[in-house]
């Protein structure tokens, strides 16, 4: 009975949303703010990837908020799982086979390079700190899949995420001190499309990349250590 009511409710809600969607210009929203940003974005910010201009310049404080959401989620998981860590007498999962171990070693440098590339070119090409950060996290977590006995140094992870997050805020505060606006782009725009362009935006993306990478890697490592603690 309860399942049936839930199903009915979910169906009703879905129908309601579909009816609403049928009445909306989905995919063709009126370009009011969008038009303005398209018009002045490349000139005002200097990022060839206009999405990055929106993410880090026009709506930079949203991105700071999203970084903090990830931080809060990781801290929450850490808090919940801190009481469930593996005890010394418990044996971790057995080591992975040859293929996994060799692939982890081989992929590690490649993933680090790709991740850094995507982070560093966030203002030029699709991608950026969030995407590159996840790839960096994968690079550091992959070896742990092969050798479950190892674990990341959580103190280092905490410091990297703390300092990277701090750097993002500090770059914003620097702009507040110099230009009078929190998170205003600084350092000149450079030539559109070159690596050293768009002012502080690449620096912000490096901070985002490091923070996201450290957070996700730390989170996965914590989860793995806890998983091993289950009987």
């Amino acid at each position: 009975m309860r399942n049936f009511t839930s199903l009915l409710f979910a169906g009703g809600l879905g129908f309601f949303l579909l009816v609403l969607a049928a009445d909306l210009p989905v995919g063709a929203a009126p370009m009011v703010a969008g038009e303005g940003i398209l018009g002045q974005g490349p000139e005002a910010v200097g990022a060839a990837n206009l999405v990055t201009a929106v993410v880090l310049a026009y709506r930079g404080i949203d991105t700071l908020g999203e970084l903090s959401i990830l931080f809060a989620a990781a801290a929450g998981v850490g808090l919940i799982l801190s009481g469930m860590r593996r005890r010394a007498d418990q044996r971790p999962d057995p080591e992975g086979g040859f293929i996994l171990l060799a692939a982890a070693d081989l992929l590690f440098p490649l993933l680090v390079i790709v991740g850094l590339y995507i982070v560093l070119h966030g203002h030029l090409t699709p991608g950026g700190g969030f995407q590159g950060g996840v790839i960096l996290a994968a690079a550091f977590f992959l070896p742990l899949l092969g050798r479950p006995g190892d674990s990341l140094n959580h103190a280092v992870v905490n410091w990297v995420e703390g300092l990277a997050g701090g750097a993002f805020v500090l770059i914003g505060l620097w702009a507040l001190a110099v230009k009078g606006d929190f998170l205003a782009p600084m350092l000149g725009k450079g030539a559109l499309g070159s690596l050293f362009s768009a002012g502080t935006l690449p620096l912000l993306y490096i901070a985002v990349g490091l923070k996201v990478g450290a957070e996700i890697a730390g989170l996965m490592s914590t989860l793995q250590e806890t998983e091993a603690a289950e009987p």
Binding site: L64, A155, E161, G162, L163, G165, V169, L170, F182, K211
Partner: peptide
């Protein structure tokens, strides 16, 4: 808004 976030990021470390 910025300062509590800055402090919050650094606190676990």
């Amino acid at each position: 808004v910025a300062l509590p976030l800055l402090a919050g990021f650094l606190t676990p470390a």
